[in-house]
């Protein structure tokens, strides 16, 4: 079915709210806990879940997410498992969008055509492959377009204007603006230049494509700051950390997660 993402942004916009996107690694510490956390997050205010596909060599990720991926790989969590978690999630949730986020090789191994078909069958809404910029993802883009899925690309502080134009053309769903030069879990800085670049990307897409910002957002104050000029905010490392900290007590994890997500959702 068609990606839920455009509707989510539109609906939030009409309510003057910003879209809340969260990231977690699938299978850390288990598929059941991931599923449980996904439901808690969507009930507490998350609109879109980026579900991380574990990969042995996550070159864009900082230590927090690396360790989470390592824990997941200890359980041999595969791309097939990630897709099966979404299938399970869809049994009880038809509103929250799910984006599969990860690195190229597991998708390459499965085969791009097979991957696209499987995600279509299981209710995934979009895909973000970190190490596959527009130039290297023509085939993936073709298949995702065919199945009406969102293909999310990254833009970063080093992206030139010409590329920003191109990225806003190729992207669907939203553009993920990486706020810093660096890896996930780094510190946020230079708000005015982030704002400038976010506005630029919006301009290039004639305001047709939402821009969400991620990397470095940790709490309600940084979330609020970023939400002021973007269409959505993305939180990853802090959520991954929180799930890890309380994962041996599912009930406590869900209550902590719920409190944290609400505290962000209420201010954006």
């Amino acid at each position: 079915m068609t990606s839920r993402i455009p509707n989510i942004f539109n609906k939030n916009k009409s309510k003057n709210k910003k879209t809340f996107i969260s990231y977690l690694v699938c299978g850390d510490p288990s598929k059941d806990i991931t599923l449980s956390a996904m439901h808690t997050m969507s009930k507490s205010g998350v609109d879109i879940i980026e579900l991380g596909i574990p990969f042995t060599d996550p070159i864009a990720d900082g230590p927090t997410i690396q360790k989470s991926i390592d824990r997941s790989l200890k359980n041999n969590t595969s791309l097939r498992d990630v897709i099966s978690v979404v299938k399970e999630f869809r049994k009880d949730n038809n509103d929250t969008a799910v984006v599969l986020m990860g690195y190229m090789n597991p998708v390459h191994k499965m085969g791009i055509d097979k991957f696209a078909k499987q995600i279509n069958d299981t209710g995934v809404d979009g895909v973000l492959i970190v190490d596959s910029p527009p130039e290297e993802s023509v085939m993936l883009n073709k298949y995702l377009t065919k199945y009406k899925k969102s293909h999310i690309y990254l833009a970063s502080p080093t992206t030139t204007d010409q590329r920003m134009k191109n990225i806003s053309k190729m992207s669907s769903g939203y553009v993920y603006y990486v706020t810093i030069k660096g890896i996930t879990g780094s510190q946020l800085s230079n708000v005015s230049s982030i704002r400038k670049n976010v506005n630029k990307i919006k301009k290039y897409s004639n305001n047709n494509l939402p821009v969400a910002v991620g990397f470095g957002i940790k709490d309600s104050s940084s979330a609020q700051k970023m939400a002021a000029f973007s269409d959505g905010i993305i939180i990853g490392s802090s959520i991954v950390e929180l799930i890890h900290k309380y994962s041996n007590n599912e009930k406590k994890m869900n209550s902590k997660l719920s409190t944290y997500i609400s505290s962000i959702s209420n201010v954006i």
Partner: peptide, 12 residues
């Protein structure tokens, strides 16, 4: 071959 990297490294 090719350039399979995250966006931040494309420009450098």
């Amino acid at each position: 071959g090719g350039v399979y990297v995250s966006e931040t490294l494309i420009h450098p």
